[in-house]
Design a protein around this nucleic acid. Structure first.
Lengths: 328, 328
DNA sequence: TTGTACGCGTTATCAA
DNA sequence: TTGATAACGCGTACAA
C-alpha cells in the first residue's frame, strides 16, 4: 500500500508538495503538479483517510439516527441525506435504535470518540436536557419529529394543519363520524395532529367523541386492534384518520375482516405516503411529506453546523400534500 | 477535550500506562490501574478513535452493501449484521447502491481509503474479475445473492429447492396452470428458482408453457404488468409463483383490479416473507429465508476474514420455510 | 511493572 | 513555488 512518502520519492518532491496536489492548492507549478499526478497514478496511490482524519480531527462521517431503518417512512429522507452528504464528501452512517436508550447512547458515543462529525436526529426518547448538553459541544439537528424543549434547530412540517386538512377533506365528503387513530401523545407530532383533528371537527360543528380517539403504538396490529374496538361501538365511525400509513393499512385489514368495504362503508386516510400506500388494496389516501427535501435540508443545516458550531440556524417548516386515492 | 496525555499527567503515570489500562493489558498493578481509572473518570476522557484507528490501521467499520436499503427484504439481514458487529466492537455502515456502478465504486473506494475494514456484498452488478481482484487484498463476503464466478465465500439458501417446494405445494392444492413471475435471469437466484419451477412441473407431468414465464424487474408495477399479460391469455393460470413478495403483491393488486379473487380464482405465492406479506389482503403465502441468521453468519464470516485474510472460509447454505397464509 | 521514544499517514506552519 | 519538520492521539517495542 503506497503512502504519501512513496509518492513523494517517486516524484522526487517533498511530501508537502504531494499533499498540496492532493488538496488542490493553487500555489503549485503546473510542471510539478503533473509529475506528482503521474507518480500517484503509477503507484496507484489512494490517500489513507485514517491519517487525514487524525490530522484534520474530522471523520467525514455523519450519523442519521432513527427508531427503525426498516420503517419505510424514513427511506426517502435518507436518500436526501445521502445525496447532500455525498456531494459534500461526507459518508452517511444510518442507524436504527429500536427506541432503545442503550443503543442510542452507543451511537452518541461516536461523537465523543470523534468517529462522526454530527447527527441528524429523527426521533429520540432522550431527555431534552441530555440532548441540549450534547448539542453544546457537537453538531446535532432535529429532523421531522422534534421536541420544543430541545434548543437545537429542527426541520418539519405543520402537523396540526396537515391533520386539519385531512379531516376537512373527510367532512367535505360528507363524513361526520370520524375516528382518530393516533400514536402516543408523548410525541409532539401526535399532539399536533390531534389538535388539528379537534379543530377541524369543532369548526364544522361536529362534537368530539372520546370513544373515537385512540392512542396506540405504531405497529400494523395496533391499527387492527383499534378498528376492532371502533366496530364494537353502537355507532361506529364512517371514516378513520390514522396518523401513519401502517396504522391505516392495519385498519383496512380489520375492516375487510369484518366484511365491510373501504371506502363505501368506512373511508380511511393515512399519513406519510410510504411506498406501500399505493400498493395496498384499496390504495391509500394519505398525507405526503416532502421526505426527500426534508432529508436534504436537514443535511445542509447539519453541515453548516459542523463548519461552525456557533452559527445561528433557522428552523424550517416545509409544505405537505394531501394525496387522494381509492380509500376515501 | 481530554487526551491520553492529560490522563497520564492527572494520574502521574506515562501515556503507555494509560494505554495499557485502556486496552486491558494484564501486566499492570491494581493500584496504578485504579489511579488511572480515576483520572479517566475525573477528566471525562474518551479515547479518540481517529488516533487509535491510525495507529492500528483499522477503522472498526464494516460495510453492508445492498441495492436498496428501503427494500424490506434486507431489513432483518441488517439486524443480524448489526448485532454481531456490535458485539465485536464494529460499527456497520449500511448503503444502498441503486444498482448504480458509480455509487458502488464510491463505496468500494472506502476500502482503499482504509475507512472500512470489510464488505458484506448483497447483490452487485460488478464484473466477477473486479470483485475477485478486490477480494485478494480486502475482506469481502457475498450474502444471499452471489455469483459462482466470484471466488469469495458466500452464504445463501438453496433457491432451486425452495422454488421447487413452492410449486409442489401449488400442485398439491390441485393447480396445473402455474405461472412464474421471475426477475432478471442475470441473477443466479432467478435462474435457480426457474430451474426449481421447471423441475417441479416436469416431475408432475405438467408441460412447461413459455407464455407462463416472465422475466421482469423487481418493482411492484412489474408484478401488475405481468398479470395483465397473463390474464389476456386464452387460458390464464390458476396460480402464480412470484419470485418476490413485492411482485406478488403487485400481482394480487392487478388480479383484484380484474374483479377476480385471490385465492379462489388465482392463488399467489411470494418469496421473502417481508413484513408486509402478513399485512396485505389477503395475507401472502411465501417462502421465508432465515434473514436474521443469514446476516449473523455473514458477519461472522467477514470478521474471520478481516482477522486473517488468508483463512479458508466455507460457504454456508441455510434452511428456509414455506409459510402458508390466505393467498393460496 | 512502568517509562521512553518512535511511528502510523496526513496536513500545516514556517522558512527558504 | 517548494521543502523540512512539527504536530494530530494513540499503541507498542524496548529498555529499565
Amino acid at each position: 500500500m503506497a503512502t504519501i512518502k512513496d509518492v513523494a520519492r517517486e516524484a522526487r518532491v517533498s511530501v508537502a508538495t504531494v499533499s498540496r496536489v492532493l488538496n488542490k492548492h493553487d500555489n503549485i507549478s503546473l510542471k510539478t503538479k503533473l509529475v506528482v499526478e503521474n507518480a500517484i497514478e503509477k503507484l496507484n496511490y489512494e490517500p489513507n483517510m485514517l491519517g487525514r482524519n487524525l490530522r484534520r480531527s474530522k471523520s467525514g462521517m455523519i450519523l442519521a439516527l432513527m427508531p427503525s431503518i426498516s420503517n419505510p417512512f424514513y427511506s426517502q429522507i435518507v436518500e436526501g441525506i445521502e445525496d447532500i452528504a455525498t456531494k459534500n464528501n461526507y459518508t452517511v452512517l444510518i442507524s436504527g435504535t429500536d427506541s432503545n436508550m442503550d443503543k442510542e447512547n452507543l451511537y452518541f458515543n461516536l461523537l465523543k470518540q470523534k468517529l462522526i462529525d454530527g447527527v441528524i436526529l429523527m426521533n429520540t426518547l432522550q431527555e431534552p436536557e441530555f440532548i441540549n448538553t450534547l448539542a453544546k459541544k457537537y453538531a446535532i439537528i432535529q429532523c421531522s419529529e422534534y421536541s420544543e424543549e430541545v434548543d437545537i434547530p429542527f426541520i418539519s412540517i405543520d402537523n396540526k394543519k396537515a391533520s386539519y386538512d385531512a379531516i376537512k377533506f373527510l367532512i367535505k365528503l360528507g363524513h361526520k363520524d370520524i375516528a382518530l387513530i393516533n400514536s402516543d401523545e408523548e410525541f409532539l407530532y401526535a399532539r399536533r395532529r390531534k389538535e388539528g383533528y379537534i379543530e377541524a371537527l369543532k369548526e364544522s360543528g361536529i362534537s368530539i367523541r372520546e370513544e373515537f380517539m385512540g392512542q396506540v403504538g405504531l405497529g400494523f396490529d395496533n391499527g387492527r386492534r383499534m378498528v376492532k374496538r371502533l366496530l364494537k361501538l353502537e355507532k361506529p365511525p364512517t371514516a378513520i384518520f390514522a396518523v401513519s400509513d401502517i396504522l391505516a393499512i392495519g385498519a383496512i385489514k380489520e375492516i375487510h375482516e369484518a366484511k365491510l368495504r373501504v371506502p363505501e362503508d368506512i373511508a380511511v386516510i393515512g399519513f406519510d405516503n410510504i411506498e406501500f400506500a399505493n400498493m395496498s388494496t384499496p390504495s391509500l389516501t394519505t398525507i405526503a411529506q416532502p421526505m426527500y427535501q426534508i432529508g436534504c435540508e436537514a443535511t445542509k443545516m447539519l453541515l453548516k453546523r459542523i463548519d461552525n458550531i456557533d452559527t445561528k440556524i433557522d428552523n424550517l417548516i416545509l409544505d405537505y400534500n394531501l394525496i387522494i386515492r381509492e380509500s376515501t
